[in-house]
Design a protein around this nucleic acid. Structure first.
Lengths: 211, 211
DNA sequence: TCTAATCTGTAACAAATGTCACCGGCGAAG
DNA sequence: CTTCGCCGGTGACATTTGTTACAGATTAGA
């Protein structure tokens, strides 16, 4: 992990901070599909994503899991950043969507830098704030939108993230939107009928709105 | 506002912080029903609740408003605490539910103390974190629970907050749960039938589960 | 007192979503 | 090649929630 690369990923930090991070952090890699964080697990370090994409779920014993958000390069996991304030074991599941690389920061350092580096402090707050906004957004969708709108929004985000060729099964989409596979199949079929998408096996192609 | 009272409300702060807060803060009061924060309004100060209860809504131009949470004495509004990092005007509506008293802290001080007082920093983070947890909880309810369960949960929280005599109209409850009055009436009637509550005019009495 | 507004109850219906049953197609493992 | 499991499609139906339309009851105010 090079200094230059780090500065690129996190452009808003102060000078001394980069060096400290490089020194204190452990560089890790993992292959697609790996579970990075299990619910109930004690969190000892925080994650800064270097490359790849991570998916975060909220786990619940009774009702299953709930998709929270993606983590991308240059972002940090808000949950692990502040989870030690009460020694809590956050009920979160993190999975690598692609092959990934990340820096693991010991929580003691996270804490130490808060006082030492203003930019780190802001980074933490900003991370939290943006996640908060995202959650509000999600709530808004669930509370006010119907499934067809949510699905379209979901697909559009996938397109923005990985291009017009969406490699997801109906099952996976249904899981992310907390509904059943049949409902998704139904709505996708309708969207195909409306010329928004093309349905292939294991994948969907976004062709957008005509006119 | 006395030092002793302040220490009581916010027991986890450092010594010098109390004095600074007393000096920098403006003490305000407002009567029940007052709108304390309008969406789009520029936020110049953060609120620390001294007495009474405040209700926070997320405002949206197209789909109306969404009830977020209550603010109680000893708590701070997470939204106003960090809203200036990008000069944003958060889309939030705050209303006094009861007569209230609060301290208004200039945002410059909020920022200054972050670096000066570790306990203040933790206070801010903790505030954010607990709101985050609460949002997750809310999402969970909306995503997984049906209306009857949500209603029961809602009523139970009211009971915990203000006692078994719930002074709310069906209309108000419906607004908080983003549904229609008729649905609430229907479900309440069923709950009465099941012996959970007694319905009066303008109010509901919680009698709990038998056995 | 009379009137208007608000609150609650309810029936009937519409729409959205969840569930069940079953089918055929495809691909991986043997 | 055959079998098995996952993927997608689809129809029928149940359930939940939203909507419309009213009616009676209570309260506030003129």
């Amino acid at each position: 992990m090079e200094l230059k690369e780090l500065k690129n990923l996190f452009p808003d930090w102060e000078e001394g901070l980069y060096e400290e991070v490089l020194e204190a952090a452990n560089f890790h890699t993992a292959t697609a599909g790996t579970t990075l964080l299990k619910p109930g697990q004690n969190i000892r370090s925080s994650m800064l994503v270097v490359s790849g994409t991570i998916k975060l779920y909220r786990e619940d014993a009774t009702d299953g899991e709930f998709f929270m958000y993606y983590l991308e390069p240059g972002e940090a996991c808000a949950v692990t950043l502040v989870c030690d304030f009460h020694q809590e074991t956050s009920q979160v599941l993190a999975k690598a969507v692609t092959d990934i690389a990340y820096l693991a920061i010991p929580l003691s350092k996270v804490d130490e830098w808060l006082r030492k580096y203003k930019s780190w402090h802001y980074f933490v707050i900003r991370t939290y704030r943006s996640r908060y906004e995202e959650l509000l957004q999600t709530i808004h969708s669930i509370a006010f939108k119907k499934m067809d709108e949510r699905l379209e929004q979901y697909l559009l985000r996938q397109v923005g993230r990985w291009g017009t060729h969406i490699k997801l099964t109906h099952q996976e989409i249904a899981a992310d939107l907390n509904t059943s596979r049949e409902v998704i199949s139904r709505l996708l079929k309708k969207m195909e009928h409306d010329g928004l998408i093309l349905l292939h096996r294991q994948s969907i192609e976004w062709v957008g709105r005509k006119g």
